[in-house]
Write a protein that binds this DNA or RNA. Structure first.
Length: 433
RNA sequence: GCGGCUAUAGUUCAGCGGCAGAACGCCUGACUGUGGCUCAGGAUGUCGUGGGUUCGAUCCCCACUAGCCGCCCCA
């Protein structure tokens, strides 16, 4: 026997009943996005590698070691090979599409959402997969369309709070920070390096490494002994120019007015180079080491970084896998039941049963169809597992047009005329769900 | 990429250097057109893969693979 092929590391199959939860999350997200007047965008699963190296940043972990990249072969002698990459995130692709289709020329703010798989070659863990699913949105446009307005930041954050509430996620925390403009960043980094130089030798090994490779990440360190040192380091907030500071204050004021709760976290640092000014993360305690439900921020210079016009924007990506984990921990998902199971009593009633099932399904009912080769006892057992009610279809029923209907939740068995059956089952559904 | 733990029935998990186990689930019957509760029976495994030690390995050792936990990073 040949060895069976298995799903590759870090990927998995999603099966019922879990997929019902995935669908519900997507449906809720679409509803909420619609209320904020966002439209859907679908970008390709793979892009030119340069999009990510220039957009996300050559030095980020994502680009430097986590991308699925390959050389796509040339089709003809005259053609060159092309370096392609499975998208590790979707913001760069959306901004690429924004530039390519000259969406900025409309003069309108573009409000786009996406739902789809992303790929990063990390070591898999709970809540961290190599193919994972993000639900995200971007607000982007020319400055005169209001894309830089702090009100946009606040609206996006308020929308996220509403979405998590609509999904039934309990106990989330919004962490908020401003990492400053493209101009603020180098100035702050210089100050940070200066402050780190005399103290870094007293910090943990990770911090000593981070001080070299990515000093911002030192702020993220969780080692208790390092905390007093980190508290003494310069804060990003103190290095912001007046415009950034004012912008961030306006975001906070709008959130206060809307009644969205948040905590300021001056150490919140994001791992993608394109983030500027407002950055945020929604976390949930139940997720363990991967506690970020979603993350995002402003990216005022991304369009220009990949060759487009000035197009400030703000966006986020939600880890759908992590929403599923959180919701599963809150309430266990039960298999969904059909409204009714049509059970032909003998094989002679099979054809009539299919016809009845067709009628009921056309009225919008969820119907399981049994088999006349089953004994009634077995049909009852089966139906009780799959459906809320059973409709027995035997010789008597067909002759009289009065069908035997039993409701498993009450145990009550009645005779219902065929004409009234659909209405009866629909009414029962309102009670049971 | 680094460190640790784990891998046995469909599922959750016991187990022991000498015939492979439980619970739940599944199938059959008691009950030939009535489920749930009960009772009686039954089926199910390359014990993750490959090597080694041993008379003998599911068990001990090594490697690999995968999952989980932590680091890193992020969604």
């Amino acid at each position: 026997m040949t060895t069976p092929v298995k799903a590759v590391r870090g990927t998995r199959d999603l099966l019922p009943p879990e997929t019902a939860l995935w669908s519900r999350i997507e449906a809720t997200a679409r509803e909420v996005f619609a209320r904020y007047n966002f439209g859907e965008i679908r970008t390709p699963i793979f892009e030119e590698t340069a999009l990510f190296s220039r957009g996300v940043g050559e030095e980020t972990d994502i680009v430097s070691k986590e991308m699925y990249t390959w050389e796509d072969r040339a089709r003809a002698q005259s053609e060159k090979t092309q370096s392609l990459t499975l998208r590790p995130e979707n913001t760069a692709g959306v901004v690429r599409a924004y530039i390519e289709h000259k969406l900025g020329e409309s003069g309108q703010l573009q409000k786009l959402f996406y739902i789809g798989p992303q790929f990063r070659r990390e070591r898999p863990q709970k809540g961290r997969y190599r193919q994972f699913f993000q639900i995200g949105a971007e607000v982007i446009g020319p400055t005169h369309a209001g894309s830089e307005s702090p009100l946009r930041d606040a609206e996006v954050l308020e929308m996220l709070a509403s979405l998590l509430d609509a999904l039934g996620i309990e106990g989330w925390t919004l962490k908020l920070n401003s990492v400053g403009s493209a101009a603020d960043r180098p100035a702050y980094l210089a100050r940070l390096r200066e402050a780190l130089a005399p103290v870094v030798s007293q910090m943990c090994a990770d911090c000593q490494r981070r001080a070299e490779t990515n000093p911002l990440r030192v702020l993220d360190c969780k080692v208790p002994e390092d905390q007093p040192i980190i508290e003494g380091l310069p804060r990003i907030a103190d290095s912001l120019d007046a415009a950034s500071r004012e912008h961030f204050a306006a975001v906070c004021a709008a959130l206060d007015a809307a009644g969205v709760e948040y905590t300021l976290d001056h150490r919140l640092v994001r791992g993608l180079d394109y983030y500027t000014r407002t950055t945020f993360e929604f976390t949930h305690g139940g997720l363990g080491a991967q506690n970020a439900l979603l993350g995002g921020g402003r990216y005022d210079g991304l369009s220009e970084a990949i060759g487009g016009p000035k197009a400030p924007g703000i966006g986020f990506a939600i880890g759908q896998d992590r929403l599923v984990l959180t919701l599963q921990a809150q309430q266990q998902t039960a298999a969904e039941r059909a409204d009714a199971c049509i059970a032909p009593v003998g094989e002679a009633q099979n054809a009539a049963a299919l016809r009845l099932a067709r009628e009921l399904r056309r009225s919008g009912l969820r119907i399981e169809l049994g088999d006349g080769s089953f004994r009634v006892r077995k049909s009852m057992e089966l139906a009780d597992k799959l459906a809320w009610q059973i409709v027995l279809l035997g010789e008597d029923e067909l002759a009289s047009d009065l069908l035997t209907v039993k409701d498993f939740s009450t145990g009550v068995q009645t005779k219902i005329s065929r004409a009234d059956l659909a209405a009866h089952l629909l009414a029962a559904r309102k009670r049971t769900t």
